[in-house]
Computed example of a mutant assay.
Amino acid sequence: MADALDGRLLVASPALGDERFARTVVLLLHHDDDGAFGVVLNRPLPVPVESVLPTWQEAVAAPGTLFQGGPVGLDGALGLVTIPDGAELHAGVSRLAGPFGVVDLDADPGEGPLGVTGIRIFAGHSGWGAGQLEGEIAAGDWYVLDADPADAVTPQPDALWRRVLRRQGGALAIVSTFPEDPSLN
């Protein structure tokens, strides 16, 4: 499976037992034999970017808040960018997987075009040790799906879980209608 998951989405199945990841959509930025690293795309925080990184407020995609990228390293920030094919990148931007990359948040976003189509800033990230993610996928905790660059900077992150599942069609479209609390059915 190794690097085949770079740039793909992990969409939490309703059976996932870890409440920290319930109904999440995780963009995997790196995956190899040593583990995996990504960010949760649909956990906006009620903290405007300007309260932490004021120079970046005008550059980020709506909503202009920080996002909780996962339970690891909450005291750090990661700037995720979407990059169009053939774009000339600013020195502070690095491509990671497909149309996704990171931006150096110590750089000044006003120093010229970054060569990106969207920016989102995450507090923390999601991480898995060697073999851990593969075990969770085999257990049915995650659906591994193709990412659309717009997923990373959607203005409606709260609807992302349902939208990604629905666009798959078939059984996964039906999963998108699964109630948050099945006991209320």
Rank of each mutant, 00 (worst) to 15 (best):
A2E: 15
A4R: 14
R8F: 07
A15P: 09
G17T: 14
V25A: 01
V26Q: 00
L27Q: 03
L27I: 10
G38C: 02
G38S: 05
V39R: 00
V39Q: 00
L41R: 03
L41F: 05
N42A: 01
L45P: 02
L45D: 03
Q57A: 15
A59L: 14
A61K: 00
A62V: 02
A62L: 00
G70V: 07
G76D: 08
L80E: 06
T82L: 09
P84H: 14
A87N: 14
L89R: 05
L89A: 06
H90D: 11
H90P: 08
S94R: 10
L96F: 07
L96H: 03
A97W: 04
G101I: 12
V102L: 09
V103Y: 02
D106P: 06
A107I: 12
P109N: 12
G115Y: 09
T117R: 13
R120T: 06
R120Q: 06
G124M: 05
H125P: 00
S126H: 03
W128I: 10
W128C: 10
G129P: 04
Q132G: 07
L133K: 08
L133S: 08
E134F: 05
G135R: 10
I137A: 01
A139T: 08
A139K: 05
A139C: 07
G140S: 04
Y143T: 11
V144D: 00
D146M: 13
D148W: 09
P149F: 09
P149N: 10
P149T: 12
D151F: 05
A152D: 10
V153R: 00
P155N: 00
P157R: 00
R163Y: 09
V164W: 06
G169N: 15
I174T: 15
I174M: 12
V175M: 05
S176G: 09
T177N: 02
T177Y: 01
P182S: 00
